[in-house]
Design a protein around this nucleic acid. Structure first.
Length: 829
RNA sequence: GCUAGAGUGGCGGAAUUGGUAGACGCGCCGGACUUAAAAUCCGUUGGUAAUAAUAUACCGUGAGGGUUCAAGUCCCUCCUCUAGCACCA
């Protein structure tokens, strides 16, 4: 073993003292923006899973730098969020203090891995200088009508007097304290991501994401084309449904409404009123997730009927919780013959099942449409429906608007104040630019208040200090307790605020209340990659020149679990910023890749409770950061989940030890005694090609095995110094410390990592003067012959026949063929 | 249930996209060094049969069928596992 501890420590110190710089140089024209998802700095410290993606993208970043490109590879902290706040609640430590400690730990750990992050670009979402711009972007969305308020169901714990997140409630019991929880309606800020659904769907065509990621996003957005159809209730009113299968319209045997549907009351007859109310009550205590997970479909008849738009038949109306208010119109036409869920429901409650399409896709029992193919029938029925003004074609999305507020402390405050209706009216008359295009209002103490933004110059609205991170209010966050912060004087003309605990400052100032909700932790991460570009800018999100230089991100790595939330949210915010002219492209990330999990030994998930976690720092200490880097890359395909095996890490340490000793031997020998053969030349250029292409293709496991193969053949031999340097250069992104050491001892004064000398391969070097031919007889490889490249086909064939003579047994050849570029001779008898 | 992906030695995995299956690493076994152990180095290592022989033959990539001179790779049927979504009309 070589002394990795001393060697790596030496270079960590030298690098930190300025021997290398990972800051992009502004002179270069070709750029690469490489991005890994930034971590939430938890108290548990860096997880080995984090290191995989940092290392893999570090290899890319280093390779690009060595190829002379201008590389941006930054890191920061996604530090708002629930765990820190809960830690604050239980330990009484300010979240800011806990966050700072955790960041320090993370940073030390990352530095020990030899990752070439440009720390001059470091950002922290909880830094007011950062969240100033999170608030600024929200402010623009508010002004453009993308932010509004709506009522949603949340978990409420009476004992804790607080709103809880879904993940904090297990089987209706709070995770902290074990108290019972209930569902409760609450007004929340919402962001209208659904307005971008179509673009989020279609623009995936423009980008290079892993197929599985695109598919998953499309599935989540769930764009579908169908029809909105009205079923008459009486002469004046009707029930609207949305269906993707208008071709099955004649198969409708009942209707199902979501229990919360506004027409339920109207349709319910006295006879059924009690059971309907009972059912509604039951359902209101369930989350959407619960409702969707139930195996048994339940529902209740309302007693009411609607008229079929084409046949005029009376159709009974039911309510059931498998129909959700949030999708479509909150009501469906049930076609039990052709829909599994409707079928299960019909069978349970003994409802009619009427088939209208044959296995061949031909319509039956459908009046004038009988005999049509279902695709054609879809169009025909939509046509008839819209001619009769009973409905129209419509596109729908499964996507729901984004619930954007939290009744929590550790998040970004909103740049919003609530003013009286008189004040609001005045602002409207003045055409103030601090209003939303529509009214956003709330009732408070019998009065209506309106949401308006503060002036841009007021940003950031900083989090106030509070006594308790656990609120004692009724659905309000801990910020509501900071009454001096909440009560302000607001200037109608300028949007400025001053503390409210003084006398009225004068003309134009009105009393106002700050919004006390905070933003979810998805907010800060929805645009952070923009801030890395220009993290200290006080005038804008980032300077337009820098934005143009770096965006879009060339490659973005993150976990599969972020595909439907973070990745979609950030694309949405970016598209909005594109629409208001801040960014130059409509998509933020050119390429998206995903790393597979590192599982514990035995192939199960690592978890603290099971005690099977791997601490990356301990591994560095024992085997070296270089060995750890090589091993994690070597484990297997980048995007697959693979079990940890410390023995494998030992093997990589052995490999690097061989490299080290080989280097020492070469350094010690006079140059003239070194060998330089054609085979060495060919293998070296083969390696350059292999490593260059495999890094590009994210096949880092085979890179490492190629290095091992090369050293198995040439290791220990006195190869030419420049050839050895080529090998070191290729290995440098994988093992930055060891290669730097040998590079220095080979007589270089500058770092191996900042020199623009990534080697190029010579195709002609890869071609040999001799060629191998496999001789296949009846599809089986029977002999191998080596011939000079200028051998004619006839001669090859003759040689092959001779070599494989005993397998031919004198039989007549049915087929003979030479496939030159594959090096195969085919003989069939 | 839907969608996608994957099944290769004792283990992690490789295979230029139809052309020597098992690269590379781990582990195991044997050997060297050592008083001994660890570390290190060298060698063997899919299975069966056979041999003085690392001569040779056959079988082998979840199961079964098919296409082809030739299938881990392509097609059909089935099984198992993993991931994401989960009653989305």
């Amino acid at each position: 073993m070589y002394n990795h501890r001393e060697l790596e420590q030496k270079w960590r110190t030298k690098w930190k003292d300025g021997f290398v710089s990972y800051r992009p140089e502004s002179t270069n024209s070709t750029t690469k923006y490489i991005l890994v998802e930034f971590p939430f700095p938890s108290g548990a410290g860096l997880h080995v899973g984090h290191t995989k993606s940092y290392m893999a993208l570090d290899i890319r970043a280093r390779k690009y730098r060595m190829s002379g490109e201008d590389v941006l590879y930054p890191m920061g902290w996604d530090a708002f969020g629930l765990p820190t706040e809960n830690y604050a609640i239980t330990h009484g430590i300010h979240p800011r203090v806990a966050t700072e400690d955790n960041i320090k730990t993370f940073k030390n750990q990352i530095d020990a891995l030899g990752i070439s992050f440009d720390w001059s670009k470091e950002i922290n979402t909880t830094d007011p200088a950062y969240y100033k711009w999170t608030q600024w972007i929200f402010m623009q969305m508010f002004k453009h009508g993308l932010a509004y308020q709506d009522t949603t169901q949340v978990w409420w714990c009476e004992e804790l007097k607080t709103v809880l997140a879904n993940e904090e409630v297990i089987d209706g019991i709070s995770e902290r304290g074990g108290h019972p929880c209930e569902r409760k309606s609450l007004r929340q800020w919402m962001l209208a991501i659904t307005q971008y659904a179509e673009r989020l769907h279609h623009d995936l065509d423009q980008v290079d994401y892993l197929d599985i990621i695109k598919r998953q996003q499309r599935n989540w957005i769930g764009l579908s084309t169908g029809a909105r159809i009205r079923f008459a209730l009486d002469e004046t009113s009707s029930l609207e449904i949305y269906t993707t299968r208008p071709d099955t319209l004649y198969g409708v045997t009942f209707m199902v409404l979501a229990p919360e549907h506004p027409l339920v009351d109207v349709l319910t007859t006295d006879e059924y009123r009690e059971s309907i109310q009972q059912y509604q009550e039951q359902v209101s205590q369930k989350t959407d997730l619960d409702r969707q997970q139930e195996k048994e479909k339940t529902g209740v008849f309302t007693g009411g009927y609607v008229k079929h738009p084409l046949t005029g038949k009376d159709i009974p109306v039911w309510i059931a919780d498998y129909v959700l208010m949030g999708y479509g119109t909150g009501a469906i036409m049930a076609v039990p013959a052709h829909d599994e869920r409707d079928k299960a429901f019909a069978e349970r409650y003994g409802l009619d099942i009427q088939p209208v399409i044959t296995e061949e896709g031909e319509l039956i029992n459908s009046g004038e449409f009988d005999g049509m193919q279902s695709e054609a029938a879809k169009q025909a029925i939509i046509q008839v429906i819209s001619d009769k003004k009973l409905g129209q074609e419509e596109q729908q999305s499964k996507l729901r608007d984004w619930v954007f507020s939290r009744q929590r402390y550790w998040g970004e405050p909103f740049p919003i104040v609530w003013v009286s209706s008189e004040a609001y009216q005045q602002m409207q008359e003045q055409n103030s630019d601090r209003l939303a295009p529509f009214e956003v209002s709330r009732e408070r103490d019998g009065l209506t208040e309106y949401a308006v933004t503060v002036a841009e110059s007021e940003l950031p609205i900083e989090l106030p200090e509070v006594e308790s991170y656990l609120p004692q209010g009724l659905g309000e966050g801990p910020l509501a307790l900071a009454t001096d912060w909440v009560n302000v004087w607001y200037h109608l003309n300028t949007g400025k605020t001053v503390a409210g605990n003084v006398e009225c400052p004068g003309e134009g100032w009105v009393k106002a209340l700050r919004e006390t909700d905070t933003m979810p932790n998805w907010a800060g991460s929805s645009w952070y990659f923009l801030r890395y570009i220009d993290p200290t800018n006080t005038e804008a999100v980032a300077s337009p020149e820098q934005i143009h230089k770096w965006l879009p991100v060339d490659i973005y790595n993150g976990g599969m679990e972020h595909t439907t939330l973070h990745l979609l949210y950030s694309r949405f915010w970016y598209k909005f910023l594109y629409d208001i002219g801040i960014v130059p492209t409509s998509e933020p990330y050119q390429k998206r890749i995903s790393h597979g999990m590192i599982l514990a030994e035995g192939g199960v998930k690592m978890s603290k409770s099971k005690g099977n976690t791997i601490n990356p720092l301990e591994m560095c200490e024992a085997f070296g950061a270089d060995a750890l880097r090589c091993y994690i890359m070597f484990m297997g395909p980048y995007d697959e989940a693979i079990a940890w095996d410390t023995h494998g890490l030992v093997g990589c340490n052995r490999f690097l030890t061989k490299v080290y000793h080989w280097g020492e031997t070469i350094i010690a020998q006079p140059e003239q005694s070194n060998i330089d053969t054609e085979a060495l030349h060919r293998d070296t250029h083969g390696l350059i090609k292999k490593i260059s292409e495999d890094i590009e293709a994210q096949k880092l496991n085979t890179c490492v095995s190629s290095f091992m193969e090369y050293i198995n053949i040439w290791g220990g031999q006195l190869i030419g110094k420049s050839t050895f340097e080529t090998f070191l250069t290729l290995l440098a992104p994988f093992a930055p410390h060891l290669t730097e050491e040998l590079w220095e001892r080979l007589g270089h004064a500058t770092s191996i990592h900042t020199s623009s000398h990534w080697p190029e391969w010579d195709e002609t070097a890869l071609v040999s003067t001799e060629e191998d031919f496999q001789v296949h007889v009846n599809g089986k490889m029977r002999a191998m012959i080596t011939l000079s490249v200028d051998t004619s086909e006839e001669a090859i064939l003759a040689q092959a026949l001779e070599a494989a003579e005993k397998y031919l047994e004198g039989n007549l050849l049915k087929k003979q063929k030479v496939i030159r570029q594959k090096g195969i001779v085919i003989l069939v008898v």
